[in-house]
């Protein structure tokens, strides 16, 4: 159980990068971007293709980020220059990317134009490279001993290196995002999502800001896809289906639990939301009468609950607050009245 949950935390931290991308479009730009389902796979397939061809995994991941950025910019151009509705721009780009992703993966094969998947079983990845450095440090053995002998768990994760490296990557991205959203360009992007007319009257080109915002968002999504492909040692054309809903679920769950008072706090909320989602997912999978194929339904239910419950809780809280206030006031009046009589 511990090892299984540990795995979902690792994955959750990687998916958090995708969720930060979704936060950037969905919340900051107020643009419901469905490109995500496609650009996640674009990142995964670009990285997997290059790794399969023997390139350095770091370079492959970098190219995946660039590919995602371009995909996002295309969606932005469809919307701003082509005047296509935001949802439709994303959907169009998403289905276009499906074919493009098959072609990208096809580049890794000598005898085929398209490929539906790329296994990376014996290839070097970012994680395997880090692992060879990490295992020399001997920290894993020490921690495994601690968990098995001292804390008494049956199983322990095979390594702590992966969780460390993904945590560092995700936190770096979080801090860059926090900083970026406070820069002059970042402020202009946020204002674009908030009040387009206002920011235009302060000499900002909302069209290029939308394109830039979508580019950055999908670059993050593709980065996440590239890492997931290397983590699970597999890239597949269908691995992105429902990704936007998972991203939204993470954003909404995180915001509901941790709040959105400042940007610093919101980005932490989004990352935590992604991890919590993965944990719920892992627990749901362990229930006997549920099948793996039920996961999409469970995801939908989680999102619906995360959307509806906070409203309900807020209402309850306000009602209780009001009732408390009223009884307090009644008490004050009684006291005042009593004094008067005396």
């Amino acid at each position: 159980m511990f090892a299984a949950l540990f795995g979902s935390v690792e994955q959750g931290i990687i998916y958090a990068i995708m969720a930060l991308g979704v936060y950037l479009t969905f919340r900051v730009l107020d643009f419901p971007d469905l490109t995500v389902d496609g650009s996640f796979v674009t990142g995964a397939s670009t990285a997997a293709m290059m790794i399969a061809l023997g390139y350095n995994p770091l370079l492959a991941t970098l190219m995946a980020i660039v590919a995602g950025f371009i995909a996002g910019c295309m969606t932005g151009l469809l919307h701003t220059k082509g005047k296509i509705n935001p949802l439709l721009s994303g959907i169009l780009m998403m289905i276009a990317l499906y074919s493009i992703n098959l072609r990208i993966m096809g580049l890794s094969a000598e005898n085929a134009i398209v490929k539906p998947n790329i296994p990376l079983m014996n290839s070097d990845t970012i994680f395997s490279q880090f692992q060879s450095f990490w295992s020399n440090l001997g920290i894993d053995d020490a921690l495994t001993n601690l968990i098995k002998n001292t804390l008494g768990f049956q199983s322990a994760p095979s390594t702590w290196g992966t969780v460390l490296v993904v945590l560092i990557i995700t936190l770096i991205i979080k801090f860059i995002a926090d900083w970026f959203l406070k820069t002059e360009v970042g402020l202009a992007i946020r204002a674009t999502g908030d009040n387009k007319r206002m920011i235009r009257s302060f000499s900002a080109n909302t069209d290029s800001l939308i394109v830039l915002g979508l580019g950055i968002s999908n670059a993050l999504v593709a980065f996440s896809g590239a890492l997931i492909a290397q983590y699970s040692k597999f890239a597949d054309a269908n691995m992105g289906i429902g990704m936007i809903v998972i991203g939204l679920a993470s954003v909404i769950i995180g915001e509901a639990i941790f709040g959105t008072k400042t940007i610093f706090r919101t980005t932490i909320a989004v990352i935590s939301g992604a991890i919590i989602y993965r944990i719920i997912y892992a627990i749901a999978l362990r229930i006997d009468w549920l099948d793996t194929s039920d996961m999409k339904l469970i995801t939908a239910v989680i999102v619906i609950l995360a959307l509806v419950l906070p409203q309900y809780i807020d209402k309850r809280r306000e009602k209780r607050r009001k009732l408390k206030r009223r009884t307090e006031r009644l008490g004050e009046q009684n006291v005042a009245g009593g004094n008067h009589l005396a």
Binding site: W179, F180, K182, T183, E184, V185, G186, L187, A188, A191, I199, F202, S203, A204
Partner: peptide, 14 residues
């Protein structure tokens, strides 16, 4: 945002 109207917006703190 209003303050950075006159110059090109850059990647420095607002």
């Amino acid at each position: 945002i209003a303050y950075s109207r006159n110059a090109k917006r850059q990647l420095r703190s607002g």
